[in-house]
């Protein structure tokens, strides 16, 4: 499948999909979308890149092992729930802060970091599965 066309279009498509996945992730709280679907899109992006340029290229590009990314995501998710212990409220209570960055009020919340955790888990895990399966094919 290492066709020239695929190799040519793969980088922009991958980049586009990654950007789109972040967009889907962030808008999820108010519109259809969210961490899971975003993560799936991102994982597909990796898979497409992998088909085009080979798995080792993807592994090289993302630097971390996909499963480590998944572990990081789960850690973020779990900590988003646990952090509320410091606020004196129960597990998984949504905590919101609105810091002002460059004059823009940016809402940050544990529920958003939780969704980001979901994103990373799905990205890492599904990406890992896809890469592992592709790797077999090139054996």
């Amino acid at each position: 499948m290492n066709t020239l066309i695929l190799r040519t279009v793969a980088p922009p498509i991958t980049a586009l999909m990654l950007v789109f996945s972040v967009f889907v992730l962030l808008r999820g709280h108010n519109e259809p979308g969210g961490g899971f679907i975003g993560g799936l899109i991102a994982a597909s992006a990796l898979a497409i890149y992998g088909i085009a340029y080979g798995v080792s290229a993807v592994r090289h590009a993302i630097r971390f092992h996909p499963m480590a990314i998944a572990g990081f995501g789960l850690l973020v998710g779990a900590l988003s729930g646990v952090v509320s212990i410091f606020a004196g409220v129960p597990f998984m209570t949504g905590l919101w802060i609105y810091p002002s960055i460059f004059g823009v009020e940016v809402p940050l919340a544990t529920v958003i970091s939780f969704d980001i955790g979901v994103y990373f888990v799905v990205l890492g895990s599904v990406g890992s599965i896809a890469l592992a399966l592709e790797e077999r094919e090139t054996d």
């Binding site: 499963m67 480590a68 572990g71 995501g73 789960l74 779990a78 900590l79 646990v82």
Partner: peptide, 9 residues
């Protein structure tokens, strides 16, 4: 869960 995630990393 936290330790599982850390071990994974």
């Amino acid at each position: 869960i936290t330790l599982g995630a850390v071990l994974m990393m």
